[in-house]
Every structure is written in structure tokens, then in C-alpha cells.
Design a protein around this nucleic acid. Sequence first.
DNA 1: GTTGATCCGGTATCGACGGTATCACCGATA
DNA 2: TATCGGTGATACCGTCGATACCGGATCAAC
Lengths: 247, 247
Amino acid sequence: MTRETAPEQTGPTLRQKIVLAAAELLEEAGLEAVSTRAVAARAGVPTPSIFRIFGDKDGLLEEVAEHGFGRYLAAKAELLTGDDPVRVLREVWDLHIRFGVEHPAYYTLVYGQVRPGHMPQAGRRAVADLRGALVRVAAAGRLRMSVDLATEVMHSAGVGTILALTALPEDARDLRTADTVREMVVDTLTLPPPPDGAAAPGITVASSATTLAAALGRDGTSALTPGELTLLTEWLDRLADPTTTAG
Amino acid sequence: MTRETAPEQTGPTLRQKIVLAAAELLEEAGLEAVSTRAVAARAGVPTPSIFRIFGDKDGLLEEVAEHGFGRYLAAKAELLTGDDPVRVLREVWDLHIRFGVEHPAYYTLVYGQVRPGHMPQAGRRAVADLRGALVRVAAAGRLRMSVDLATEVMHSAGVGTILALTALPEDARDLRTADTVREMVVDTLTLPPPPDGAAAPGITVASSATTLAAALGRDGTSALTPGELTLLTEWLDRLADPTTTAG
DNA sequence: GTTGATCCGGTATCGACGGTATCACCGATA
DNA sequence: TATCGGTGATACCGTCGATACCGGATCAAC
């Protein structure tokens, strides 16, 4: 497989060497062991190289987070191709929980160092993927509320479940919590499948508004002006989330 | 109010002066502004005093967290005296959300700096109070699951909701998320009230045994073997009918 | 009144941290 | 051959958490 005489013998980039060294330190000894000096020593490069490449330490940690989330986000993207969107939702939840429990260092790096108004790129990508899964639920007419609200609710519950689990002593963690919260979330966000090809009594104002919004987002329309579309979208959001009342 | 000639003119303790200085710095400029030097300068004490009193910086932050959680925990304790435990549950949730949104510095200090297996004292006290509220729900016969599991579920959802909200840019925060999650949690954890005052004079061993037997007969379970289930049913019958005594 | 223990103010200092400045070198490009 | 961007290497800056050490103030016990 490896050609000794290959003309392209460059090997890992300097970036990659540094990110990998930082990732190893993070996994082996936790976040507080990741100092710029320790990373540089492990990567075999002088300390200033880190700042030349990543700007500052936060820039390095951003890329370390991307590195750690890579396999997780790829697996999640693969799940999204499933055909039953509610089933996919459960699989996304379980994948999320498993990743958080098995890689607490990466997870707490992204979601466990909360500063007001800030979230790493990897975290935003994960939320965007979750939103994609919920758009598909909405398109199937099985979402009870707006996609945005559902995304926030499911993301909040997922992050909280893992962080609360991680903060517990290792011998006190009860994985049933994750299962209970998953069913709670799925039951709250989704509608039961229509009983058959027939009339589908699960249709409500909220669910049909959500379905229409998803369809408009997916296919667009030329029947309305942009201004009309903006207003309609706002109305659909209000119809989708019944807790909102007209002012 | 202040008596000039008061014999007890001690004023605030050294501890209190330092904790207060650190708390002010935390609220005004965030966690990263709380350095031991800055705290010492603001409190008007030499730096080593901090370490003499609190051991290390974490010891100081522990007491700062206690200070910041003080009013919140006191208000929560007052709520717990309410008579409708499910209503109390909602009030506890709202109080929790309000505290997290209004005091993100204290909240993220306690719940937003996740290290595996670690939680500040103030956080553990808050969880214990939540558990107390759920014990009262269970005592009223309106809890669907064990107190421990319910505590974990509600705590996870609450922490996740506030942390996810805090991590959002300030203009993108949607407080409806908290309301949706609250109703989701309450619906999942609690049972509806008994249909009328007539049928529910009070929860007793007999009545709850009857309730459980009825539920088992209606829904079945896969948590017990058929043999275990047979034995349990017999015990429930004995508990439900006090005229029968054990041989 | 003297002694001793304890607490507190004050200074200096330590090692490690994030980050920067500066220079030499080396390979590609023109 | 001259130039220029990327890299290695060293020294350095200010700040951090934490400690050592000294001197003075207080208070109880003898």
C-alpha cells in the first residue's frame, strides 16, 4: 500500500503534528495538561510555531475540538440518511450520548467551558446537524413545533444530560437517565405516525404549520413575493409554537 | 441603625471581605478577571492572605459560589413549603431558570466548568433541594418514576437549558425554550392529579399497593420474571387488604 | 509583666503560563 | 543569483498561582 519511492513523502503537516500532540495530551491528562509548552515539546516544535500557525491558544483548541468531533460528526451525517426520521432522531441521540460518555475530554472542551455568548465551531456544526435531523422530521409532518424551538429543546436536553452525567462520580452514573430523557424528548417533539395511509388524525394546526414551513424551506415557492414569504414564515412559526400569543 | 459606640465594631471578617471582593470582580468582569492578585488588591489585603484562609484559589471560588447561590437557595427553600408539590416543581424550575439567566457568572462558575467527577458544594446543595421537591411529589403519589431518576432527569434538563441559553449570543436567546422544556419535564415526571377529591383521601400503603397492582394488570412489565411477578402480586394483595396477616 | 502562640500585613521569590521579538537558516521561485 | 515565506531556535515579557520568610499586633496563661 505504501510506496517507498513515492515522490510525495511530505508526511503530516506541521499543523497536523501540533493538533495531534495537543489531542493526545487532552485525552491522556485532561485540559489543564494542555499548555502551549507541553504541546510544543510533544510535537517536537518550538513554542512560537503554535502561535504562528493558530494565532493563539484558543485557535489551537478550536482545531483540537474539530479533530475530536470529526469521527462523531461523520457518523452523525451518515445516520441522517436513514428513512424513518423519528428513528433517526433516536439514533442521533444515542450516538450523541455515547460520544459524550466515551470522550468526556473532547465533549467538555466544546460544551463544558461555557462563556456567555460563545460556542466553538465544532459545537455549532453539531447543532446544525441536529437541526437537519429535525427538518426531516418536520418534512414528514411529525414535528409538533417549529424546527428552531425543537432544536433548542433537544440540544439543551442532550447537553445537560451528558454534562450532568460527566460531573457525577464515575460510580454514580446511571445511564438510564439518558434513555429516560431521550423518550421524554422524542415524545414531546414528535407526533405519532399516521395510523395508516388514511386520514391521519394526528394533524393539528401546529404540526401542519411546521410541515408547510419545512416544505417551503426545502422547495421554495414562486407564488409569493419575498415580503409575503417573510410574513408567512413568521406566522407559521407562531402557529407552530402555541406558547406564543399574539401581542 | 449603626451605633457608633457599639462595643462590637469588628465589621466584616477578613474572609467576608475577600469573598465579597472576588464576587464583585466575578460579576463585573467575568471569571477570567478573578485573579488572586486582583482580589487581594480589591479587598485591600496582601495576596498570601487568600491562601492562608482558603488554601488555594479553588477554595476561594467555592466560597464565592456559595455566596452567589445563597439568595437563590434560600428562595428555593421557601418555595418548598408550598402545598401543591407539582406546582412547586414548576416554580422551582422557573426560579432556577431565572437565576441562571440573570446571574450567568455564578451559574457558569458552578455548572459551566465541567471536570469529570467534580461538582462544587453549592451545586450539590441545589441538586439536594431539587430532590427534596421530588420527594414531596412522590409522597403525593404523583411521581412516575423513582426519586433518584427523576432528580437526574430534571437536573440534566435544567442545567442543559440554561447552559445552552447562555452559550447563545444574547440576541438569539429564546426564553420559550425554557417553558417548553419545563412542561416536557413536568409531564414526563408527574402523574395527573387524582380525578376528584372523593377518590383520593390520602396515599396509604394499601392504596398505593392497589394502584401498582392495577397498573401491572393493565400494562404488564418485562422487568420481572413470571415467577417474581406472581409473588409480587400476592404481596400486593396482602398489602392492599390489611385484614390478612402474615402467617 | 513576661512569655508564647496565633493571626495578619508586607515583601520577595518561585516555577509555569500565554504570548512576542528577534535572528539564522533553508528551499523554492523569479 | 537575489529574494522571500516558512521554519527552527533562543531569549524575553508580564502575569499567574502559590510559597517562604519576617515583623508586628493581639490575647491568654503563667
